[in-house]
Design a protein around this nucleic acid. Structure first.
Length: 448
DNA sequence: AGCACA
């Protein structure tokens, strides 16, 4: 009752806080710009950008209250107002004492990306295609996929946040190129944020998750017990779990295919540890064991459907075996353990008569094998980083540095190679996403 | 140009 309006000019001021409220910021002001603005006065420990309906407000939190006071005081008496991008920024103490929950995991740059695949056919995008797409930006350590209310999602782990950011910036909002998808599959758009994870836990190689850093990780039991766990692949075929052991069946076997021929053919891709041949369904099949899955993958990709001899003879059909280590009881003309003997190319004397008797028609000398080791030499040394061929979307000749299909690439459908001078164009979705005219070429080499 | 729920 004593003095009326003793301090009316302070009625609307806030008490000091180490959090400052900023308004009239330029649109979508960045955290970096806020830090630049506050740095002269102290240590900015937290920010929150793009607040408010117009996303033109923000908060800065200093480490110490005095730093916030220093900033307010400075601009209260300065002739130059606080500015961001030349725009005057209005400052005041916030009515809160700290910035709470400033960032979600999606805002914090990390090495793991959360990828949501949008589209009615999103589920048909295989983990292999995801691996191919993301490998364009760097080594992909692990991928897990899962279904949640958000839809079909994947976590993609890179070495570091920089690589992940490059992939995120280049791929977010883009659609997977149609030539990586089956014809009937509609647009599959990628929505990408950061994940809070730093290291994914992948216990098995399966159709749902992969650890590309650990080729010896066991294949998921669920994927090999035949209990309906096989998913349908892009081409409608069953996706087999990869294995270091290949099952090769030989079609149209006009010429004898001996253990030594198989050894020669399959040795082009890496050391063959064991081979076991046997008869099944009236034909000859063989199990070929490599020391690791990658070698087997490359061999399978290269040899599947090819013929050992010219003229369509002895056509190979290759799948992954459920075996991981063959049990070779005796070395003979049908089975051999090359790890037990350092002779690998010396034919063995027939020690046991085969069930069908002697080898059929030994005419192979007049038909030189099509394969030479050199033919597939580029696929050797795949231990460090797997070529994209390993996951079935590109042939093994594709260099590692450019895992995406290129124009004039044999896997490129007609039309794409001549439509653009850019290496690869990510196709824009007809649904959602920026308009076609603004699409940037998909050029990972230009991304930071 | 006036305070945050992602």
């Amino acid at each position: 009752m004593a003095s009326v309006s003793s301090q009316p000019q302070f009625r609307y001021t806030q008490p000091p806080s180490k959090v400052l409220h900023l308004r009239n910021l330029p649109w979508e002001c960045t955290e970096e710009e806020l830090i630049e603005l506050g740095k002269p006065f102290g240590k900015v420990v937290n920010t929150k950008c793009n607040v408010g309906a117009n996303r033109n407000q923000a908060f800065i939190e200093f480490a110490d209250l005095n730093q916030a006071i220093a900033m307010i005081s400075y601009y209260a008496s300065s002739s130059e107002p606080a500015q961001v991008r030349g725009k005057t920024v209005y400052l005041q103490y916030s009515n809160r004492q700290e910035i709470v929950n400033n960032k979600t995991a999606a805002d914090v740059a990390g090495n793991v990306l959360l990828v949501t695949i949008e589209g009615t056919d999103a589920r048909l995008v295989s983990i292999d295609v995801l691996h191919l797409v993301f490998s364009a930006f760097g080594f992909v350590h692990k991928i897990t996929t899962f279904e949640k209310t958000a839809g079909f999602q994947a976590l993609v782990q890179f070495t570091d946040a920089e690589t992940a950011t490059a992939a995120k910036n280049a791929l977010d909002g883009r659609s997977i190129p149609s030539y990586l998808l089956p014809e009937h599959v509609g647009p599959c758009t990628l929505r990408i944020t950061y994940s809070g994870h730093t290291d994914l836990s992948v216990k098995f190689q399966s159709h749902r998750s992969r650890d590309y850093t650990n080729p010896y990780l066991p294949v998921a039991p669920s994927a090999i017990d035949g209990s309906g766990q096989f998913t349908v692949g892009l081409d409608g075929k069953k996706l087999e779990p990869e294995s270091n052991v290949l099952l090769a069946s030989i079609e149209n076997m006009q010429y004898a295919v001996t253990l030594d021929v198989l050894h020669m053919v399959f040795s082009s891709f890496g050391p063959v540890q064991k081979i076991a041949m046997f008869d099944k369904n009236g034909g000859v099949q063989a199990l070929i064991q490599y020391p690791d899955i990658q070698t087997a993958v490359v061999a399978k990709e290269a040899l599947e459907g090819h013929c050992i001899y010219d003229g369509g003879f002895c056509k190979l059909h290759i799948s992954y075996s459920r075996h991981t280590d063959l049990s070779i009881k005796v070395n003979n003309d049908r089975s051999r353990d090359y790890t037990l003997s350092n002779v690998s190319n010396v034919p063995m004397v027939n020690s046991q008569p085969s069930i069908l008797g002697q080898q059929p028609v030994p005419v192979m000398t007049s038909n030189p094998p099509q394969y030479s080791g050199a033919q597939y030499a580029p696929t050797e040394q795949i231990g460090m980083q797997q070529p994209s061929a390993g996951w079935g979307a590109a042939p093994p000749a594709v260099p590692q540095s450019m895992p995406m299909p290129m124009p004039n690439h044999p896997y490129m459908p007609p039309g794409h190679g001549t439509m653009t001078s850019h290496p690869v164009m990510m196709h824009m979705p007809s649904q959602g996403g920026p308009p076609q005219t603004t699409v940037a070429p998909y050029r990972p080499d230009q991304m930071q």
